[in-house]
């Protein structure tokens, strides 16, 4: 019975600790769909939930949305703040708006779709292991150090809101990257890339991955995937598995 039930929680005036305790309680009752209204900066939403529940958020969730999260699907109708998907293990975060700094920091799995722009160091130190592969797709553009220290996963920057001929703004893209891949639509100058990344054309396999993820992105936000995919993409890849291996005297 409860499986189909949508539980609505009005979060106005509720501190995050109470809100998250309430979420835990509702989820342990077996509820699978939750609507949170009037979210004004409450942190850590979805953090201690390890079931594949669906959470719709109306408002602006606070920092560390879905930090350490393991399974839920969160849709934000509004903007997300810093640390969205921090060290996430599994699940999905879909933001109909912007997200702040360190989106997807150290994520090990799951998917994050941001419709508009992200702040600094998005996708920093994402890592993959065997079948776990984090994905971050950003519809707009990003600030500096996108994909810094990246150790795995897929990061896609679409630049849909760039004007014709306009470059992405981020500098130091992929600095220290040593695994994983970044697909980028829209121009960047060479100096905007970190020393540790190379640029390549997409091969067939890249095309498949890109098509799948861009289609998913497009379906979340009502875009036409073919339109997005028509444009040329560049693939950024790590030049070395061990960027700092030659730094030391043994």
């Amino acid at each position: 019975m409860k499986n189909n039930q949508v539980v609505k929680i009005d979060a106005s005036g509720i501190f995050y600790r109470e809100l998250n305790a309430k979420l835990r309680e509702v989820v342990s009752d077996g509820v699978q769909k939750i609507e949170l209204c009037n979210i004004y900066g409450q942190r850590y939403i979805g953090t201690d939930l390890d079931k594949p529940v669906e959470i719709e958020i109306f408002g602006t969730p606070g920092n560390d949305l879905g930090a350490f999260m393991d399974g839920p699907k969160i849709t934000v109708h509004g903007n997300a703040q810093d640390g969205c998907g921090n060290t996430m293990n599994n699940g999905e975060i879909i933001v109909h708006g912007h997200a702040g700094d360190i989106t997807g920091l150290s994520a090990r799995g799951g998917k994050i779709f941001i419709r508009d722009n992200v702040g600094y160091r998005a996708g920093i130190h994402m890592k993959e292991y065997q079948d776990r592969k984090p994905v971050v797709v950003i519809g707009g553009t990003a600030q500096d150090f996108l994909g810094e220290y990246m150790a795995g996963g897929v990061l896609i920057l679409l630049g849909l809101n760039l004007k014709k001929g306009e470059c992405h703004k981020a500098n130091f893209i992929g600095t220290g990257m040593h695994s994983g891949v970044i697909y980028m639509r829209g121009n960047v100058q060479d100096f905007q890339l970190g020393k540790e990344v190379g640029v390549a054309e997409l091969d067939e396999k890249d095309g498949l991955v890109l098509k799948e993820l861009v289609s998913e992105f497009a379906s979340h936000f009502g875009y036409a995937a073919e339109e997005i995919l028509k444009h040329k993409f560049a693939k950024l890849f790590p030049l070395h598995l061990r960027p700092y291996g030659r730094l030391y005297a043994y």
Partner: peptide
């Protein structure tokens, strides 16, 4: 993390 990569 994948085998053989630096853990930074």
């Amino acid at each position: 993390i994948p085998e053989g990569t630096d853990a930074l």
